[in-house]
Design a protein around this nucleic acid. Structure first.
Length: 289
DNA sequence: TTGCAGGGGTCAA
DNA sequence: TTGACCCCTGCA
């Protein structure tokens, strides 16, 4: 991997197993927009960047080397050998197909707070509405950022929503989830939960901490653990995952508990990667519905 | 046009 | 263990 800067662009050469569409459309993030030229623009850690690729070269626009090393290298998980992971997981035929289908998926290292709120909103909800709610929250309480003549908004910080009440938050149309967002903001601002410190805890301990927040059950907690706390052994299990695991490995319907047990035995410390391949595979092919 | 089911779960009884 | 839940789209 070779990295250099050209004006406001950082160019990274020799990146294997990296596919923008698969990364942004596999369900782990909600704020990346596809442009007409096939590139993607997103608001991440209070910055707007555009990313495109040309073979094994990726080009990050509106950034610099300092941010690349401080943020993007880790955000896009560029130092991990995904081909090795794919090879390791491809021991059974089903997983081999799923991993081949979703080749180039990277597990993004997202901001914990944003990830937490996003997946609280995701519960019993559909993707277009989740995106809409996150967008309106950002427009109302985030900071404007100008890029290419267009105004983007950073994701609001916990402090930005801390003092709000339910009536004020109702505009975002997240319904009964508004009180969960407020609970999360309050627990964090008041110091009941230190989300930054969760990385240092074990997966089990970190999950217990997250589930102290209202609206955070096992599924939401596992998404936060996987997408923002580098806990790659979790296997977030929603209806899609349950259906595809049942379909591919059991041949009959199974419980969430069965899925969890199966994932630990089959995928172990690579559960999170396996889950992403399977989830994307199931949704795109509408398998198991 | 109206009515109803259901969606990447969680809470509370 | 089982409904209810905000909101809104899709479909009859």
């Amino acid at each position: 991997m070779q990295v250099y800067q050209n004006h406001d662009e950082v160019i990274v050469e020799g990146v294997k197993a990296f596919n923008l569409q698969h990364i942004f459309e596999c369900g782990q993030c909600f704020r990346w927009e596809k442009e007409e030229n096939g590139s993607y623009t997103g608001v991440v850690y209070g910055r707007v960047i555009n990313i495109r690729n040309d073979g094994e070269t990726i080009i990050l626009s509106n950034t610099n080397m300092q941010d690349f090393h401080a943020i993007w290298k880790s955000y896009f998980d560029l130092e991990r050998d995904y081909r090795a992971i794919q090879a390791c997981l491809s021991k059974d035929e089903s997983m081999k197909k799923a991993a081949a289908f979703g080749w180039g998926i990277r597990i993004l290292n997202q901001d914990v707070w944003e990830c937490l709120v996003s997946f609280i909103i995701s519960s019993n909800n559909i993707i277009p509405r989740i995106q809409k709610i996150i967008k309106s929250l950002s427009e109302k309480y985030g900071q404007p950022i100008l890029f290419n003549g267009k105004t983007y908004y950073s994701f609001p910080r916990p402090e930005d929503v801390y003092q709000k009440n339910l009536e004020e938050l109702a505009f975002c149309k997240s319904g009964y989830r508004c009180k969960y967002i407020l609970d999360a903001a309050r627990k964090i601002v008041e110091g009941n939960i230190n989300i930054e410190a969760l990385t240092a805890l074990s997966t089990f301990e970190a999950r217990e901490e997250l589930m102290k927040i209202k609206g955070v059950g096992p599924k939401v907690a596992d998404c936060v653990l996987l997408f923002s706390l580098q806990k790659y052994d979790v296997f977030p299990t929603d209806v899609w995952i349950r259906r595809i695991v049942a379909y591919l490995y059991f041949g009959h319907s199974i419980t969430i508990k069965d899925v969890q047990k199966f994932a630990i035995e089959r995928f172990g410390s690579l559960g999170g990667f396996a889950q992403q391949y399977l989830f994307y595979y199931a949704r795109e092919l509408k398998i198991g519905k």
